[in-house]
């Protein structure tokens, strides 16, 4: 068994270990960051006011989680957390590509034809995955990461319950809602594939006992999703938009970067 690594300094002494570790943390950080970014575009535009407020809490919590991961990377010598979040180019980003997908047509500033069905399906799929990964991470050989996973699991059950309730209620309501949800599920099935992967360093991650293997994570995810979603496609998940774990992203991430880094990039040295 790999011994437990207690600090960043300790991790840095083993290059192979720390490379795999950083790769994993980037994936966790970038997933939460982009999910929160897309959530922040919804602010003020949700189906009703009470939901707007509840949804925003989840979005904030999720950004809070991203911050914890970026701070871990900062400790591991990757540079300033704000720079990691705002200044990394597209190809360096490791979030799953489906998570960067725009909320619908239009933009949050103009003609925001956002689709609640996409948001419900995306968040539900993502929060199930997040729970599975976090639970695996509580046993990670890198103790600071295991500790964060433990902490995030304190508030993540609410997130999962929230989106699970929405998907349950909508798929049990009228035909219109059912078909809208169904359409987004079929779409997700074709695009969510890379979310369930760990990228090029997946075997090292498992070898160093940083996280459980892809196969295990996928099985756990599928079991949970099957128990909630009424009709799932029978074929395997696909990577129709690319593979974000390898830095292959869509134009939607380009749009996101342009927006979330606009002020930051106007003066990188300035204190904001």
């Amino acid at each position: 068994m790999t011994k437990r690594i207690e600090t960043a300094d300790e991790a840095k002494q083993d290059a192979a270990y720390s490379e795999a570790l950083k790769e994993l943390i980037y994936q966790m950080a970038d997933d939460d960051f982009i999910v929160s970014f897309r959530g922040s575009e919804w602010l003020g535009l949700a189906p009703h006011i009470e939901e707007d407020v509840a949804f925003s809490s989840i979005t904030q919590n999720t950004m809070g989680h991203a911050v914890m991961y970026y701070n871990l990377l900062e400790e591991l010598g990757e540079g300033d957390a704000d720079a990691l979040a705002h200044a990394r180019p597209l190809e360096k980003r490791r979030n799953a590509v489906y998570l960067e997908k725009q909320n619908g047509d239009g933009s949050y500033l103009k003609e925001p034809y956002f689709d609640w069905a996409l948001t419900v399906v995306r968040h539900y799929f993502y929060e199930v995955l997040k729970k599975v990964k976090l639970e695996a991470l509580t046993k990670s050989s890198y103790v600071p990461l295991a500790n964060i996973a433990q902490k995030v699991l304190m508030e993540q059950p609410y997130h999962l319950a929230h989106w699970k309730l929405w998907i349950r209620q909508l798929q049990n309501s009228n035909e219109d809602a059912k078909s809208r949800i169904n359409m987004r599920i079929v779409e997700a099935w074709k695009e969510f594939g890379d979310a369930l992967e760990l990228g090029t360093k997946s075997s090292e991650m498992v070898q160093h006992e940083l996280i459980a293997g892809e196969e295990f994570l996928q099985k756990q995810w599928l079991n949970e999703v099957k128990a909630t979603v009424m009709s799932l496609p029978t074929y395997p998940l696909e990577k129709g938009l690319g593979n974000g774990r390898n830095g292959k992203h869509s134009a939607d991430l380009k749009q996101a970067i342009k927006i979330f880094s606009e002020v930051y990039e106007s003066d990188r040295e300035a204190v904001w």
Binding site: E51, V53, Y158, A161, L165, Q169
Partner: peptide, 10 residues
């Protein structure tokens, strides 16, 4: 169920 889901965060 939705009322409960909204309550705490509101």
């Amino acid at each position: 169920e939705l009322a409960m889901m909204m309550a705490q965060e509101n």
